[in-house]
């Protein structure tokens, strides 16, 4: 049996009395795009922070391409690209300066031009980060996550707060990642349906259901993924709300 790209087993994380992640196990095969879908506060971000090694789990284990993200930190950083929710960059630096900086961290980075084209920022190359629109900042953030030719990528709330046109551009950028393993955190149903091979539905720190979008729809007996989410969680998914 081939080793999966990302394997999380029995993850558990508690902050004070609040259980953020309660026994979550995930398996993502190489080249696969897994969507993690859930409402705000469901534990999605904590789950990917545990996988990225930003936080230590109270229980459970994580392997990213066969490595432990906390013990083998240096090696994991080379093969895993991460786009964080709400991360800001050096505001006074231009798009090209930031790309050059993040490229310099890796031994064999993608070229600056390739990254600019991938996220369609060629026209903004000399623009400072703080002067970019929200969508442009998000796209730059994706480009930085891909700068080191990662084998696996975590994208947290890729399109939250973007207008429809910017959202479609982001989707196109993610669709161009054919060889990479992707974990996509989202609460946008349309996005998950379009981009993900499989979906894990998370609520209150637990996985309620997982499978292909079609399987989830079939399992719930609902006509579409939106309705399936409501049927499986008993909750209405908030649409395009800016998360705190």
């Amino acid at each position: 049996m081939s080793e999966p790209a990302i394997l999380a087993e029995g993850l558990h994380k508690q902050y004070g009395d609040t259980v953020a992640v309660d026994d979550i196990s995930l398996r993502v095969e190489r080249g696969e795009t897994l969507g993690i879908l859930g409402m705000n506060g469901a534990g999605k971000t904590t789950t990917v922070e545990l996988i990225a090694g930003l936080r230590a789990p109270d229980r459970g284990s994580v392997r990213v391409l066969g490595l432990d993200p906390r013990r083998d930190r240096g090696a994991v950083r080379q093969v895993l690209g991460v786009q964080l929710q709400h991360a800001y960059l050096h505001g006074a630096l231009t798009v090209v300066e930031l790309l050059e900086l993040y490229r310099s961290f890796y031994p064999d980075p993608r070229s600056t031009e390739e990254l600019l084209e991938l996220v369609e920022l060629t026209g903004q190359r000399k623009t400072r980060f703080e002067k970019l629109s929200g969508g442009q900042q998000q796209r730059l953030s994706i480009a930085l996550a891909l700068a080191g030719r990662p084998q696996a990528v975590i994208l947290d709330e890729l399109t939250t707060g973007l207008d429809p046109r910017a959202r479609r551009r982001m989707w196109a950028a993610v669709e161009s990642l054919r060889e990479e393993t992707v974990i996509l955190v989202s609460h946008a149903m349309e996005e998950v349906e379009r981009l993900c091979d499989r979906v894990a539905l998370i609520d209150a720190g637990r996985i309620l259901a997982s499978g292909t979008p079609a399987e989830l729809v079939a399992q719930s007996g609902a006509p579409n993924l939106d309705e399936a989410f409501v049927a499986l969680t008993g909750k209405e998914l908030e649409i395009e709300e800016e998360s705190a």
């Binding site: 066969g66 994991v76 310099s104 961290f105």
Partner: peptide, 18 residues
């Protein structure tokens, strides 16, 4: 199997950051 080796950013990276 992963072939990843821990690679630390080199002098070029330090100078870029500075």
């Amino acid at each position: 199997m992963s072939t990843a080796v821990a690679h630390r950013p080199g002098l070029h990276s330090w100078l870029t950051l500075i």
